[in-house]
């Protein structure tokens, strides 16, 4: 057994191992009801990571998702009254448009994605501050319940929130593995030059990938906003790190072309278990970020395909 053979299986093995460890240390962790609550808690993070998967899958990255989600929480809160359920469409369109702009700046203007998305993230921050008047906003409770209350109800004992996440996962999986777009994404991530030489419109594929990432970040922001019943230019802070960790730990390397949305589902579950474990092990909340930072470094070091990097800059 060599490392290359084991590598694709590492993420779920890690997940099983972690669950077993935490379960042994604290059997109550394995209580299904508790697990469902834990899982619903990470739904916004998961959806953001789902979007991030597409950006990383093509070999780029999107550092703007957190700010974009912030902006969307504000949009959702401000326009809920006037738009009703249509505010969801507004948010998703805004996110997709924003992502498309990132993609455009990256591909057509030759700005590396980590800079373009970092910069555009700050444009989103300005937007969020402007729209919110730099205050924390609250949704009208009645309106929220009337429009989005169903999100927190249960169908057959499973929170609808989880069902939404599962639906999105299924849709993204279908997109990734059954459509020409998904195949093109893989080609761009695994061998961009060969994709160009095969006549694919690589620029358009990349722009669409970023747009998809933006749309999913917007959905994530929307759900988060509904969950907390408000909007604020800093509401989703802290998501960026965890979203990147979820994607990379799941086994989609920074170099792209391998992995995919199912991996991200596993990655998010790993993040969830680590977080739960820290609570059980009474690790202080203040240490979480440090630990996830270290997990991130380990995950990159293990997954990255160094043969694709001639010079590491």
């Amino acid at each position: 057994m060599n490392m290359e053979r084991i590598k694709p299986h590492l993420p779920w093995l890690t997940l099983v191992l972690l669950v077993a460890l935490v379960g042994i240390a604290n059997p109550t962790f394995l209580n299904p009801a508790g697990l469902i609550v834990l899982a619903s808690d990470v739904v916004p993070l998961f959806i953001m990571a789902l979007g991030m998967t597409f950006a990383i899958y093509i070999g780029g990255i999107d550092l703007s998702v957190q700010q974009l989600a912030n902006l969307v929480t504000v949009i959702a809160t401000v326009f809920l009254m006037s738009f009703g359920i249509w505010v969801a469409v507004l948010c998703i369109l805004a996110g997709a448009l924003f992502g498309a702009v990132s993609g455009f700046v990256t591909t057509r203007l030759y700005v590396p994605s980590f800079v373009s998305t970092l910069a555009l993230g700050f444009v989103a921050l300005s937007g969020a501050k402007w729209l919110s008047g730099q205050r924390a906003l609250h949704m009208d409770a009645e309106q929220r319940d009337a429009t989005f209350g169903w999100v927190f109800e249960r169908t057959l004992g499973i929170p609808n929130e989880l069902l939404i996440a599962a639906g999105l996962l299924a849709a993204c999986w279908f997109l990734q593995s059954r459509t020409t777009f998904g195949r093109s994404l893989k080609a761009v991530g695994a061998g961009e030059l060969a994709a160009v030489a095969s006549g694919l419109n690589v620029d358009r594929i990349k722009i669409l990938a970023f747009a998809l990432c933006g749309a999913l970040a917007a959905i994530s922001g929307l759900i988060f906003s509904v969950k907390l019943s408000g909007g604020d230019a800093n509401l989703a802070n802290g998501f960026l790190l965890l979203a990147i960790v979820a994607v990379l730990v799941g086994g989609t390397p920074l170099t792209g072309g391998v992995g995919g949305v199912l991996n991200t589902a596993i990655g998010t579950l790993i993040v969830m278990v680590i977080r739960a474990a820290m609570v059980y092990l009474e690790v202080d909340a203040t240490q979480q970020q440090m630990i996830f930072g270290i997990v991130l470094i380990i995950a990159i070091a293990l997954t990255i395909d160094r043969s694709k990097l001639k010079i590491v800059k």
């Binding site: 203040t286 970020q289 440090m290 996830f292 470094i297 990159i300």
Partner: peptide, 10 residues
């Protein structure tokens, strides 16, 4: 970026 997260966490 990861080191930055670790730093802030520390």
């Amino acid at each position: 970026l990861a080191m930055g997260f670790v730093g802030t966490g520390f």
